[in-house]
Structures are given as C-alpha cells and as structure tokens.
Amino acid sequence: MTGGKLYDLRGVSKSFTKGKEKITIFNDLNMSISEGDFLAIMGPSGSGKTTLLNLLGGVDKPTGGEIWFDDSRVDNLSESQLAKWRANNIGFIFQFYNLMPMLNAERNVELPLLLTKLSAKERKKNVAAAMELVGLSDRAKHMTSEMSGGQQQRVAIARAIVSDPKLILCDEPTGDLDRKTADEILSMLQLLNREFGKTIVMVTHDPSAANYAKRVLHLDKGEFVEKDLVA
C-alpha cells in the first residue's frame, strides 16, 4: 500500500561541464514517489541513477527544475539547511556500508541521534531498539571491523533507521555481498517497507534485488521506463 505523495520532481535537469563540453544527465525529468513506496532504480552505468539518488538525498543540486519533498521545496535550500533536512528525513545505506571504523557498532548507529535533542538515555534506548530490529543486539559493543559484510550492512541499516526517517535511500546495498547475505539484507529492507511503512528508494544493478521492490524504474540516458512488479 502506498500513501500520499512524498517526493515530486518537476522538470528536473542536471548537467555539468567537462572542459568545454557540456554533459547533460537529465533534461526535464518528472517523477513522483509516494509514501510507503519501495522503488528500485535500475539502469546501465552512466544512465544517471546515482546522480538521481544524490538529488533525492539532497547531496547534489539540480541545474534546473524543482524538487519537492513532503510539500516543501528542497532544491533551493542552503548547504546547512540541507544537512538539517537530511538529518530529519533521510536514512542512507551505502554499497560499502560507510561505517566509522574507529567506533563500535552501537556508536555507529548512534551517530544520527547526536543531531537530535534526545538525551543520552533516550539515544541508548533507540540504538538498542534499532540493533534488535536488525538482529545484532549481541554484537552492539563489537568493532565493525570484526564483523562480516552482512553484519556491517545490518549495522548500516540500523544507523539509517535509528532516527525514524521518512525515506531510506540505498545505493547498491547488496553490491558487496554474496547472494545469501544479499537476500537477508533485501528481506530486511522489505520488512522495513511493509511492516514499518518506510519509503525506500534503492539503486541497483541486480535484477534479483529489484524483485524485492514494489516497482522498478529503468533509467536509460536520463529517461525513465517504468515497469510494475508484483509486490
């Protein structure tokens, strides 16, 4: 089930100049993402899917058009406003986990909560809940370097959901994992979508991964080809 409109991209374009050459990634791109959606974005290398993810995550800005999130325009926010917006609304899951090697698992998960006004006690409670959800309660004090790839990605998922964001953006979340572990991670994302109503946008090369999504958008040369999937 999907709800109201969460994201709305209106006539978005993105280009950059390399030397004297102007390279256009998107031109007049329109799309919307509803609350509770689980969207997989696929496409060949250079199709613009990571650029799209960057735009959705507010880590890059479009050169034209407008991006609306939850009825507020976000493409015109300043860097510091965007940082706050990301902290309040987005959870990121990266291909290579991007955990802080000098922190243990629970400290990694706690990072987004340091941007909130929660007390240390409340933070600890939320971290414990997130660690339990990803099945790593017993490894909370372990350094992430002592963990397997799958466990590290689960820590990254706990970090992404600990502050209860509306949207989770995943960049090739299973790209560095074996099939079995990848399926476990994708099942976990599916669970977050179905049971906790999290909106998930996932960029992937892997058609098996895309099967976990409610719908798939194929991106080619900056244009979409939508394909419905059985959820």
């Binding site: 510091s80 940082a83 990301r86 902290a87 990121f92 990072l111 987004p112 941007l115």
Partner: peptide, 14 residues
C-alpha cells in the same frame, strides 16, 4: 574523506 562525506550525508554540519 569518505568518512567525512558520510557524516555530512547523515546530517553533520561542515
């Protein structure tokens, strides 16, 4: 730099 960028993506300020 990737750690710094990750923290920034999470919402840490510059």
């Amino acid at each position: 730099e990737q750690e710094i960028a990750t923290l920034r993506a999470i919402g840490f300020s510059n």
